[in-house]
Design a protein around this nucleic acid. Structure first.
Lengths: 204, 204
DNA sequence: CAAGTTGTTGACGCCGCGCCAATAGCGTCC
DNA sequence: GGACGCTATTGGCGCGGCGTCAACAACTTG
């Protein structure tokens, strides 16, 4: 059985690049970095391995592009926030988050999943940047985006809250141990408590 | 400059194994998996590379041992919990956690740090196991370890709370954006709120 | 001091990665 | 429509990391 190799086809750089990227996203999504070879990615894309290096330089650089790409999900900017009590506004933000993350929840969780020892500084930088954007959203939602006192502490606490959001979303979408309503309750309650009960104790 | 190679010394298996393991822990702690070679580990331990495989089989298996090892920190079992209000008991547990994690906080944080896309199932299993133990501690601390109603939901929410604990501890020990007192406040307040305000809404 | 035990070594084969010169699609111009 | 040039694409080279295994030597035992 002599496999007829498909005739070599020439594509626009952007097109080819994106095609390879799609394959890489899928493979890196199912297995850890070290368990995915560029050979495999190239084969998946029906392309010579050298081409992967041509477009992305290094396996590591390709990986970073993948991470960046998968975080470019929740950019659909702010919907108008309702006026009302703190709880009302928080509730609305939580709902917005749940709605926008629902379609690709599992993928989103995979990106920010833990892998363990020895974190990569570059990867962390990318995740950190995404976190800052998320913090800005939350601050705007609770109406504290203009305040200067205890600024850093507030941001730090919201980053921590963000970690809980990720973990809880994971419980819901991957493990199925929480219903969507329970997740909604947890996220709302916690953020309200954070703003109402914890923030006031920070240095003025 | 002919380097005088140290005379070959023969050690007890346990001893040698532990020595190699120490080096591996240090190296995997500072760089991601793929950036650490077994050659490097062996060199660090002043030993032939083959010996690493002899004791740990595969690089990957060695890595798993490292992860397991670094999580074997907080096993110093329950100190007696004080009687008193929910807040008092939670406060005591948080203090206990902070005290026991303080000495090696940075290392501890490194273990549970995120690395991104494509999580390793084996690593996750280890982390998950450690999480369950932590959940048991928390449940005991808040005095809910006997309850059966809404059991899974409660555990899931506490796992999510645990993620916040990790992130907040990281803010304190690595980034320095929170003081220890602020961290203590955040952890206490959040857990109290979780038990007092969120749990009651779960199905009976 | 000889023989056995076993911790330890060094090299072999394989495979993945980064690089680069050669090759061949595809548009262009006469 | 055929020759030409541009560049997307290939395939192979060299290097280095990983797993294996037979040989070696440190230490023990009689």
């Amino acid at each position: 059985m002599t496999s007829v190799r498909a005739p070599r086809r020439r594509l626009e750089p952007d097109e080819r690049r994106e095609q390879i990227l799609r394959c890489a996203i899928r493979l890196f999504g199912e297995r850890p970095y070290a368990a995915v070879s560029t050979t495999e990615i190239a084969a998946e894309a029906g392309v010579a391995r050298g081409l992967v290096n041509h477009y992305f330089g290094t396996k590591r650089e390709l990986y970073l592009v993948v991470v960046r790409q998968m975080l470019r999900v929740p950019s659909s900017a702010a919907t108008a926030l309702p006026r009302g009590s703190l709880r009302t506004r928080v509730q609305a933000s939580v709902d917005w988050f749940l709605d926008s993350v629902s379609p690709h929840a599992r993928t989103w969780v995979a990106v920010i999943g833990t892998e363990g020892v020895g974190s990569d500084p570059d990867v962390e930088a990318i995740l950190a940047e995404a976190d800052e954007v998320a913090v800005d959203h939350v601050l705007a939602a609770v109406g504290l985006d203009g305040t200067a006192a205890g600024h850093e502490q507030r941001r730090a606490m919201i980053r921590a809250y963000g970690a809980m959001v990720k973990a809880a979303t994971r419980e819901w979408s991957v493990r199925g141990t929480l219903s969507r309503d329970e997740l909604r309750l947890l996220l709302t309650q916690s953020l309200v408590s954070l703003v109402r009960d914890t923030f006031p104790h920070l240095p003025k």
